[in-house]
Design a protein around this nucleic acid. Sequence first.
DNA 1: TGTGAAACATGGCTTTT
DNA 2: AAAAGCCATGTTTCACA
Lengths: 157, 157
Amino acid sequence: MDELDAALVEELQRDGRQTNRELAERLGIAPSTCLERVRALRKRGVITGFHAEVDLAQLGRPLQALISVRLQPKVREAVEGFREYVTELPETVAIFVVSGGDDFIIQVAVRDAGQLRDFVLDHVARHRNIADVRTSLVYDHIRTSTGPERRGGRDAP
Amino acid sequence: MDELDAALVEELQRDGRQTNRELAERLGIAPSTCLERVRALRKRGVITGFHAEVDLAQLGRPLQALISVRLQPKVREAVEGFREYVTELPETVAIFVVSGGDDFIIQVAVRDAGQLRDFVLDHVARHRNIADVRTSLVYDHIRTSTGPERRGGRDAP
DNA sequence: TGTGAAACATGGCTTTT
DNA sequence: AAAAGCCATGTTTCACA
C-alpha cells in the first residue's frame, strides 16, 4: 500500500466504472501499470468488489429507519439465528452486529410508515428472545470515501 | 420499473463491472437492449453510480464503531454544522442523521482502540452543544442487495 | 453488423534491495 | 544478482451506432 494504491482506491470508490485508460491518465501512469495495480488490489482483498449504488426512493422505498434490537439472553444460537433471519428480509438494507446496550442495529428501507410498523411488529418484535426494540427514522444518510490509515500517530497534530 | 429493470439492478449490485454482454446473456436479452436499459436506469436516477468496495481492515482500520450523538439544543445551525464537520473527518465511514433519542449515528473505522478514544474525545465530545455520546463496537456489518418494493400490500401474507 | 476503442497478455527496460 | 515495478506493443474482446 503506497501512495499510488491509495489514489487508485480513492478514485475507484468515486467512480468504479471509469476505464483503465482514464484512471491511468488521471494518475499519470501507464495503462498497463494501472491495470496491474488494480488487479493486485483485488487479489490482495483491498478492493472486494464493484457494486452499483441504487436510490431506494426511486425503487419505491423512500422511508428509511434504524431499528435497534436488544436480545435477552444473548446466546450464540439466538444471535446468529436472528441475524440470518433479518438478513433475508427484503426490507433490510444492512445489519450492524454491535456491542454495548444493543445487539443489532438494522437499517431498513420501506414504502411507508405502515410497512415500517409491520416490519417491526411482524418480523422483529415477534421473534424469540427479543428484550427491547427502538425505531429511529433516518433523515439523511451520507457515505464517505474511505482511505488507508495514515501512519504516524494522532490524526490532528 | 418492470421485472427486467429489477433484475438488472440486482445483477449490477452484485457485480457492477460485468460486461454488457455478460449481463445481457445472463438475463436472456440482446446486448443492445441491455445497454439501453442500463443507461435509462442511470438517467432516471435509479442507479446513482458505481463504486469500488474496500476492506477497511486491509487499509489498516480493522476496528469499527457506531457513535450515537445527541445534541442539545437541536438548532438547525448546530445540526448541520456538526454533520459537515464529522463528514470531513478521515475516520468517518458514514453518518446517519436520525430522529428519536439520538440525532446522529456515526460509523467510524479506526486503527485501534486508542484512535477510537481520540476520535470521540477530540472530535465529538469536544464539540459544542453535545448533550450525550455513546459508543458501540461493530462486530459485524452485513450489507444486502436491495430490490424494488413489491406491489400488493403486506410482505408476509 | 461493422468500426473504433478498450481490456488484456507479453516481453523489454529501469529501479530497488 | 535477484526481484519488483513500470512501460510499449500486439491480439482479442467489447461498447456503441
